[in-house]
Amino acid sequence: MEYLAGPLSALIGELEKLPTIGPKTAARLAFYILSAPAEEAQALCRAILDVKDKVRFCSRCFSLTEDDPCAICRDPRRDGSKLCVVAEAKDVYAIERTASFRGRYHVLGGLISPMEGVGVDKLHIAELVQRVPAEGIQEVIVATNPNAEGESTALYVARILAPLAVTVTRLAYGLPIGGELDYADEVTLSRALEGRRPLS
């Protein structure tokens, strides 16, 4: 890209490294940034640096936060008897967006997968076992993905918490809203049947 000014091709090169960004998109973004007001470019720079400087893991729930412990862990209005276990910090945001869970979280940092070298000791499972009695948690809701690793991890968590006086539940499997019964596969449908609830 010798025909481009050095800094411009450097910016394109950096943007191209980002996931889902190809060379064309990278060039479009770079030209946009070049033509944008200086304040906009500075705000973008600052936001990027701040993420690296200021965001860290919460020492209690291992979610992402600026202050430790995180806002959810500190919030006294949260129901401390319920703990939702998720694989990744992004899952916390997915559940928070529903605004229907008022308990707290515990982020495992992944799913158990010996094939990929992710053993039990690579995840925040020991910390979970400590938190449950220490915080007087009564219900642990395991909200891992309904795939093979998510299933194994959920069952493992249930097994390891079994000696403690705590109820362990799993998110219900269900039919997608707006979907059609006739298009659901047998396994989804039979799991949804198992998880049925009374209407009256």
Binding site: I112, S113, G119, V120, R159
Partner: peptide
């Protein structure tokens, strides 16, 4: 699950509760 179990059995110290799972 068989693939995961075989990987676990080949690891240094297989976790017994995970094996049971």
């Amino acid at each position: 699950v068989i693939l995961q179990k075989n990987a676990l059995l080949k690891s240094a110290a297989p976790d017994e509760k995970l094996l049971a799972t």
